[in-house]
Amino acid sequence: MERLIPLHHLSLGAFGKVRHLTADGNTRRRMLDLGLICGTRVEALQKSPSGDPIAYEIRGAVIALRSEEASKILVEVL
């Protein structure tokens, strides 16, 4: 469990595997709808000019998440 990092700390070009969502309520449901379930592979693609949000590849789609949301997704670095 010690190797888990919040998604927005994943370095660009690196892959992570979703292990845990700390969000709840509506935010959690939306994350699940995007396919962010346990085991989903995510790649950090691109930072926006000001560094936040960051675009991730999630199940074939490119989704930008603000750091507030990404910090609630804990991933294992692959």
Partner: peptide, 11 residues
């Protein structure tokens, strides 16, 4: 507070 969630960048 801002509540934004996800923004899709389509192909």
């Amino acid at each position: 507070l801002p509540s934004s969630f996800a923004l899709e960048l389509p192909p």
